[in-house]
Design a protein around this nucleic acid. Structure first.
Length: 576
RNA sequence: GCCCCCAUAGCUCAAUGGAUAGAGCAUUAGCCUCCGGAGCUAGAGAUAGAGGUUCGAUUCCUCUUGGGGGCACCA
């Protein structure tokens, strides 16, 4: 027991140097409690170089906290756990009660009424989606699901690259060497072939460049034949992308392209010029100076009057802000475009287009080749997304065949698809770092350890137990039964309950940080705890009190895994 | 030249300024008479370097080294 003198000293320090009152400390502790955490380090803040060791400070705070009403009602056990750390153990009955609330979607709808726009995937029409696109697509979709799970109104936007001189080239190439049937059969492959051929021939016949420019000019002016050809290319591309998106479980609210914003470009530039935010150079180009923001000047119009990437994004942003009135816009785009978005956001802020919307560039590193070098479409160094998925599913199928011969071949195919695609996605979603990823087949398609199949397998095992139980999983709720239950649950039961109760917090943090990997990490930990749990905590053979309770725990763990994986966009199966 | 990002175990990755820096792969030793071994248990193994701020730094600041990206008429 600490002396009165020391206790007074600690509280004095807490107040004078950290402006903490005992009530503040309690607040901090209970906030953590409410979110499912059970530790606080407030004592460490209180302890200081005035000669109060953290452990003693913790002791003093503990005395204060024991007296507080909230801690009294919430905690079964409060203890000094380490030098300066106090553990708060929620009362077991609260943990049990909370079980039923974990999958209640209403309770966690903290973002209700918020409108969130997510701009993701956004591939170029007429080019294959390669391994690099996977990050934007998969991370973007996970963020969409995440915000939706928290009750926000989310608009997922696929901002297609469907405009520019490249389409002039494509049309020119098609007229020279293309045919309808080939494009229809393998749209992207054929368009890429035409595009590549155009560039090859260009080397020996430079006059071809004019042909491409001419075709784009015609397209811009609305030439009927050009437009219909362009529309057709778009349709065929989208048909192929659509299959890929479906396979990846990716769904957009809006699919618009840069072309959609073409008519708004002039207005976007004119507005900035009129308000003297942009200046016209002698050569006719128009620029916004951003020295005040410490950024290089931002060119918004070429000297020939043409538009640029940022011009289109600017017009797009204006349109989106006006139409959707969002609270938040997320751009899930590679690292390389960091400067572009800094400039774009700076211009938007300066022009006052966005008073309330929070603009965020969700950046991520490149996917490099196995040799650590950049993958480039031009040099044929390209790994196509569909090839990766195909390979993943083949590898998964081999495992399925060797593991479980009882499944029908149709079920095996379903499992292989879920496992293979899931593995590829999880590989991406479980890491957050902006550092580049070295592409590696074995790593990406890993089917054991910290991987999607591990989580899926855990779910299958849990479901298997529930199937064998063959009865409703609701714990009986009579008062005497509840009392007996609390008497018989083990430390292992409580550990798993605590892990489960952290689920809402994991979702919340993942959304706050825009980091799906935080959710992935939680789910992995949960799966880990679950697997250890039933290793030596029998469920089906447990006693009459414990059995229904453990079935309830198992069913909740299964539900959380399924829902969490669903948010990440990873499918679960019932048997594998 | 200037700006941004990154550096953690042999490899691939984690870690709200807090406890003994966690995992997976690879490696060593165990676990199928027991709800499914894609699993479980245990062992060995890491913060690039130097300063600084802090009671406390993988985390924040400065410099160095090493990798990647960007810097007005590409996207």
């Amino acid at each position: 027991m600490l002396s009165q003198k020391l206790q007074a000293e600690v509280l004095k320090i807490a107040h004078e140097h950290y402006q903490l009152t005992p009530q503040d400390v309690e607040l901090e502790a209970t906030r953590d409690l409410v979110h499912g955490d059970y530790t606080t380090n407030a004592a460490l803040r209180v302890a200081s170089k005035w000669g109060v060791p953290p452990r003693q400070a913790a002791g003093v705070l503990l005395e204060q906290l024991r007296l507080s009403k909230l801690v009294n009602t919430l905690c079964g056990k409060v203890e000094v756990a380490g030098p300066g750390f106090i553990n708060f153990w929620l009362k077991p009955e609260l943990l049990v009660t909370r079980l039923g609330e974990l999958t209640n979607t209403k309770d966690r709808a903290v973002l209700r009424g918020q409108r969130v726009l997510v701009d993701y995937s956004s591939p170029n029409i007429a080019k294959p989606m390669h391994i690099g696109h996977i990050r934007s697509t998969i991370i973007g979709q996970a963020l969409v699901n995440l915000y939706q799970a928290l009750g926000a109104k989310v608009t997922g936007i696929n901002h297609l690259g469907d405009w520019g001189t490249q389409f002039g080239k494509l049309i020119a190439a098609y007229k020279l060497w293309g045919n309808r049937a080939a494009v229809h059969k393998h749209p992207i492959q054929e368009m890429l072939r035409l595009y590549v051929k155009f560039h090859e021939v260009l080397k020996t016949k430079p006059e071809l460049a004019k042909e491409g420019q001419l075709e784009f000019r015609k397209l811009e002016q609305g030439d009927r034949q050009s437009r219909s050809l362009w529309n057709w290319f778009k349709r065929e591309s989208l048909r192929e992308f659509g299959a890929l998106y479906k396979r990846l479980g990716v769904k957009f609210t809006y699919i618009t392209g840069e072309s959609f914003y073409e008519p708004m470009l002039r207005g976007a530039v004119a507005d900035l010029v009129k308000r003297k935010l942009a200046v016209k150079n002698a050569d006719g180009s128009i620029v916004v100076h951003l020295e005040a923001e410490g950024l290089p000047p931002c060119l918004i119009q070429k000297s020939d009057g043409g538009s640029l990437y940022v011009t289109r994004d600017l017009a797009t942003m204006r349109y989106r802000l006006q139409r959707f009135k969002p609270h938040k816009i997320l751009y899930v785009v590679a690292n390389q475009q960091a400067l572009h978005f800094e400039q774009l956001f700076a211009v938007v802020r300066r022009a006052g287009y966005s008073s309330r919307a929070e603009l965020d560039h969700i950046k991520f590193g490149l996917v490099l080749g196995e040799d650590g070098l950049k993958l480039a479409t031009r040099e044929g160094r390209i790994i196509k997304l569909e090839d990766v998925l195909a390979e993943a599913v083949i590898r998964a199928r081999k495992i399925v065949d060797s593991k479980n011969s009882k499944l029908s071949s149709r079920d095996k195919a379903r499992v292989a698809e879920a496992v293979g695609v899931g593995a590829v996605k999880y590989n991406d979603l479980s890491q957050n770092r902006q550092s580049d990823i070295a592409f590696n087949w074995d790593k990406m398609l890993s089917l054991e350890g910290n991987s999607a199949p591990y989580l899926q397998y855990t779910y299958v095992r849990l479901k298997s137990i529930l199937r064998k139980a063959g009865e409703p999983t609701q714990a009986r709720s009579s008062k005497s039964a509840a009392g007996e239950l609390l008497y018989s649950i083990t430390e292992r039961d409580l550990t798993l309950l605590r892990m489960l109760s952290r689920y809402p917090d994991a979702i919340g943090r993942a959304a706050k940080e825009n980091g799906p990997h935080l959710l992935a990490g939680y789910l992995y930990e949960l799966a880990n705890s679950t697997n250890s749990y039933y290793q030596d905590s029998p469920v089906l053979t447990a006693g009459v009190i414990l059995r229904p309770f453990r079935l309830h725990v198992v069913s909740t763990a299964a539900a959380v895994l399924k829902e969490g994986l669903g948010i990440l966009g990873i499918a679960t199966v019932e048997k594998m």
